[in-house]
Nucleic acid binder design. Sequence first.
DNA 1: TAAAATTTTTAGATTTGTCTAAAAATAATT
DNA 2: AATTATTTTTAGACAAATCTAAAAATTTTA
Lengths: 219, 219
Amino acid sequence: MKLSPSEENYVKSIYNLQLKTGKVNTNSLAALLDTTAASTTDMLKRLKSKNLLEYKKYYGFRLNSAGNKYALKIIRKHRLWEFFLVSKLNMEWEKVHDIAEELEHVSSAELIEKLDNFLGNPTIDPHGDPIPDGKGVMPVMNQIALKDLPLKKSGTVSSVSNQSRKMMEMLNHYRIKIGASIRVLKTFDFDGSLQVKIGKQAECVISGMAAQNIFVYDN
Amino acid sequence: MKLSPSEENYVKSIYNLQLKTGKVNTNSLAALLDTTAASTTDMLKRLKSKNLLEYKKYYGFRLNSAGNKYALKIIRKHRLWEFFLVSKLNMEWEKVHDIAEELEHVSSAELIEKLDNFLGNPTIDPHGDPIPDGKGVMPVMNQIALKDLPLKKSGTVSSVSNQSRKMMEMLNHYRIKIGASIRVLKTFDFDGSLQVKIGKQAECVISGMAAQNIFVYDN
DNA sequence: TAAAATTTTTAGATTTGTCTAAAAATAATT
DNA sequence: AATTATTTTTAGACAAATCTAAAAATTTTA
């Protein structure tokens, strides 16, 4: 079954809200999609009639398994396109989201599987979010603070807890990008700082404070 | 100005019909877009109101310079995406048209310029059609029959006049693909056959009949 | 040139996705 | 528990893009 771009956006947003906050209500969904509660109710009925949603009026709603599957398909497309835009076209990761919002609605399944292969079957997108596989299975990745990554074990930078300009300035200096591989070689108990190796760069030292705010996938 | 996908499809189709047959009328446009004459009239009015079209009812219509420019932008996007699908994702050129029909409506200009660079600024798409440059200028390419290509001069296979299974079988055998580089080394007056070099393959001989039906850009 | 055929346009309806404003149901507060 | 506030749904309208059927204009044919 093929949904319209608009229907797909609702399905995706419901999925995201379910993940993040557990419960979704009409108003929060409307707010996320920058639309009205009335339009949202209309769409909920439509999605129910297409058997993607459990919905009882005034009571609540949530995606059923078909809806979940559909959502994961869109999220997979979105994140693969983001990966493409950053890794192949060298676009900045702050800019790719909006473009991927359009690309994710292109329908060909063959296209997406070939794109996935072309990109080397990545599992994390440029924002550090995991990419579901072709069967819609989200890779389970344990996200931990860099300071808790076992010595010598390599991790993949997944996110930063503090997105301030100062933090960004520092990440920039160390050339730490989301998706970069990182390894802790030594810790200094005196001040909690760590000696790390980032990608193929020369080893360097970062503070415990920084290592507390940088998160990695423990892979 | 940003048009809807539907409006873009009309603009593009008008452009293509103007190129191919010189004159466009409501019915032929409706046929090409697989819609009705009534819908087409509606859209002609819309495009006129957006100043992309000269249109007098019952008299006729054609794109003005803004409409032409817009059409070339869409065609550029379509052909660059086709090139991407074939050259990077290894899709078959018969399959890429429909996917490019969707991709061409993705709006980011930065995306298209970066894609163009990533692909190496190609000038011919996988179907042998020229790709307009970033300013909307169509590369002027002289298309001639392979049999008329001057000796030693290299050309780029642009199209074949006969798309029968038999023709395809032969092209396959010679590994002649659209976009391939080709050079005529010698002609045999006895039967009109030609000795040619295709890409980096070993030299071989093809019949005059074949060379009459294979077209190349004289570059 | 008058009748027939074709092309183009209009009129009115339909679907999708949206909106505002008001009503109904639920939740919070005193 | 009654009132107030919030959330959700309905009712009705609107714009975009489409359709069918009929009318109007143009072209072809006899």
